[in-house]
Design a protein around this nucleic acid. Structure first.
Lengths: 334, 334
DNA sequence: TTGAAAGCGCTAACAG
DNA sequence: CTGTTAGCGCTTTCAA
């Protein structure tokens, strides 16, 4: 990489002259500016980012810590973050916590040494289960803003972007009830994280409100064979007419298993799941989904953080944005 | 963030004393070391990463440029890269090219200003279609090593990690032939990228070798409705007995569509696809897959790059690692 | 119109 | 054993 020093030497002027010329300072003579720019172009000069960061005490870099990159929703949010950040001239450094509190802490520490100007993150499962939030609070105390999305820690004061999980399942369940479905089951493999619990509550409320239907919940553990579990559930509980799935995997498998057992979807049974467009393209009939608008969530998170970083913490009121889900009716519902 | 300066002031010693004490230099007195470390601990001192980068002229950061984070394979590779990099104390800065040449170039330029010590990337579709490689060559000429994975540019001299795409479909196709399948179709939605073409050739070779079977290729474009296209293909070409899919989406839809048309899988028709474990868990019967060991690819790519960066380009011979795929037989084949 | 110098935070050679 | 100084690449104030 060429430096100002080298350009200066070759042009027989001082470093500061070169710097000013490249930054279009009024101070420098027209001719000099021309010469400097010409040579800089020739050598494809780019100001050293590290030096600038040191000088300005900011890196124009965002640390993103996500629990699991293989989760399509989280990957999509990351996509949204990257796009928005990139638009504003920010880079993102990505760390994957793997749902582990230790890795989450470590990443936070590792980046809170001048590597980044702020964080966007979704809380790991382990942190949520242990209700551990000190590492977040410490980071914020150090002057590094955090924006949390989706799985947030409510007792940490920071900007947040969340989904209307409760309403989403409440409405989805009601829509099945309106179809005339009686035996509706809620299936989830994310019952130990905050959003999973909210989704279950939304379902429960809708069921309880009817005053006659009974709540049926099937919780799937990581180590379970989902297909087996759902199949045996269908066999034990005859005449299930509706499925609300808290995650795409459960939803897809619930649909396919129903078909496999000879049920007609949606004639005999309706299925709705939190899932993506591509998921619904992969089932026959196409899965009715609750869409979370992951990219939008990412965009908003990045926006909030960039604002916060630029207004150097002047506003102290923290915002929580709720991105409403949409119920996209495809062919797995009436 | 606390700096050496502040610690020095508070302790009434010089900055270099503090620095040396923290770095366990022999030069400093035991008592001083103790005092310094104590205060540093109290204030949770961390050496400023940016200052270190400037000083050492390296950032311990890897730039990763991937075409599409929503592609499960690529996301998995990213996971592998992150894990390996993290193990060696490296951070990763992620850019998403979105299959665009312009964005790829821009990301490369944007990071080649001291932000990163090297790159790991998979070539964007547009770059591959236009056979554009100058931006890679320039980056390497600037002294920044590149490791390419999966979609590589053969005429760029750099380390590479690839998959045995040709052999994978060749072997998969042969396994269907050995099952006694006659009408075997190759379905692909990635026909404009290098690996897609290799996969088609592997299939063709196996078919041609039989001397009697006929190659049948169904290419799907991004804008196509895959389900519709496959359905009408099945209807026009009666008695298809085997499917080799170059991508998971085509494979899943081919399987589901067959079932939907009343075919028995695998009795009437076998399906094999490049896909992940979770994909095969999402179909009934479970999809037989060609696994690419994406995480391993990521691990190797990171290893190669870290080696290259540490051996300051002494070895000039570039390595190409081939990660062999595995054919995992599930229930969509005999 | 140009240049010298200081400073961002750190390390390390050299001096005391 | 501790401190001074220079330097990484850059910007910016102040001096010429």
């Amino acid at each position: 990489m060429v430096t100002l020093k080298q350009l200066a030497k070759e042009l027989n002027v001082s470093i500061s002259t070169v710097s000013k010329a490249l930054n279009n300072s009024e101070e420098i003579g027209e001719e000099t500016v021309r010469r400097v720019k010409e040579l800089a172009n020739l050598y494809n000069y780019r100001p050293n980012k590290v030096a600038l960061s040191l000088k300005n005490n900011k890196t124009k870099t965002i640390g993103v810590i996500i629990p699991n990159i293989l989760n399509r929703f989280l990957a999509k949010v990351l996509f949204g973050i990257e796009r928005e950040a990139s638009k504003h001239g920010y880079n993102i450094i990505t760390c994957i916590s793997n749902e582990s509190l230790a890795k989450e802490k470590e990443s936070l520490q590792f980046l809170a040494n001048g590597s980044v100007d702020g964080f966007i993150l979704s809380v790991s499962q382990e942190s949520q289960m242990n209700n551990e939030v000190d590492h977040f609070k410490n980071t914020i105390k150090q002057g590094l803003p955090i924006v949390m999305f989706d799985r947030v820690a409510h007792d940490v004061m920071c900007d947040k972007v969340i989904v209307d999980d409760f309403d989403a399942t409440y409405n989805a369940t009601k829509s099945l009830i309106e179809e005339g479905r009686k035996k509706i089951v809620f299936i989830s493999n994310i019952n130990d994280i905050s959003v999973g619990k909210l989704r279950e509550r939304g379902y429960n409320k809708a069921i309880l409100e009817t005053g006659k239907l009974e709540a049926l919940v099937l919780k799937i553990k990581k180590k379970d064979d989902t297909a087996k579990k759902i199949k045996s559930f269908y066999k034990k509980n005859k005449n299930i007419e509706g499925v609300i799935a808290a995650d795409s995997s459960s939803g897809i498998i619930a649909l396919n298993t129903a078909v496999n057992l000879g049920l007609k979807v949606p004639k005999d049974i309706s299925v709705i799941a939190f899932a993506s467009k591509s998921d619904s393209n992969h089932t026959i009939p196409r899965l009715t989904t609750i869409r979370q608008h992951a990219k939008v969530i990412g965009t908003h998170a990045a926006e909030l953080l960039i604002n916060r970083m630029q207004n150097t913490g002047v506003e102290k009121d923290m915002k929580t944005k709720i991105i409403k889900t949409s119920l996209i009716k495809n062919n797995s519902t009436l």
